[in-house]
Amino acid sequence: MKLWKDFSNGLIKENPTFRLVLGTCPTMAVTTAVFNGLGMGIAVIAVLICSNLIISLINKIVPNEVRIPIYIVVIATFVSAVEMLIKAFSPALDSALGIFIPLIVVNCIILARAESFASKNPPLNSIMDGLGMGIGFTLALIFMSGVRELLGAGTFLNMPIFGAGFEPALILILPPGGFLVYGLAIALFNKLIVKKA
C-alpha cells in the first residue's frame, strides 16, 4: 500500500512538471514533437530510477557535508550511460535532443528526489518514487508535445492528422509557443485537477 502511494504521488498530486514546476528547461525545449518528448521522458525515467536506487543504498555511508557533490556524481554517471545508449541505438533521437541529454544532470527533478526522498527512504520505495515521478514527467511532456505538434505542425508522431487545408500555427513549435503552452497547461491543471482534490 505504501509502495503504491509512493508511486502514485508523482503522477498527479506532486506531478513534477505541473505541480512542483521542476525541470522546466527540457520541458519546453524538447516538446516540439511527441517523439522527442517521449524519448526525453524515458531517458529521465531511467536515470531517476537508477539514481534513486543507488542514493538510497549509499545514504548511510555518505557524510552529510559532501552529499550533494556525491549525488551529482552518481547522477552524472547514469546520465553518461544513458547518453551513450541513445547515441548507439537511436541516432535520430540523439540529434533531436542534442545538448539536452547531458543536461539531464542538472534537471532539478532528479536532484530534488534524491535529496528529499531517496536519501530518507528504503531502496524499494525509492525505486517506486523514481518510477512515479518519471512517468508523471513523461506524461506531462507527451501532453505538451502533443498540443504543440498537433497545432504547430498539424501532425502527431509525424503522421499528418488534418487535411491539406490545415494551416499550422508555426508559433507553437517556436520558443514562444513553449512558454505559452506550458503556462496554459499549468493553469488548466490547477483549474481542473487541483481544485477538485
Binding site: I171, P176, L184, I186, N190
Partner: peptide, 21 residues
C-alpha cells in the same frame, strides 16, 4: 485565479520571447 504564479509568468515570458524573435 488559476493563472496566478507560474502560469502568468510563463505567458509573460512567451510574449518576451516573441519580442526576441
Amino acid at each position: 485565479k488559476s493563472l496566478e504564479g507560474f502560469p502568468i509568468a510563463l505567458i509573460t515570458a512567451s510574449l518576451l520571447s516573441i519580442a526576441f524573435l
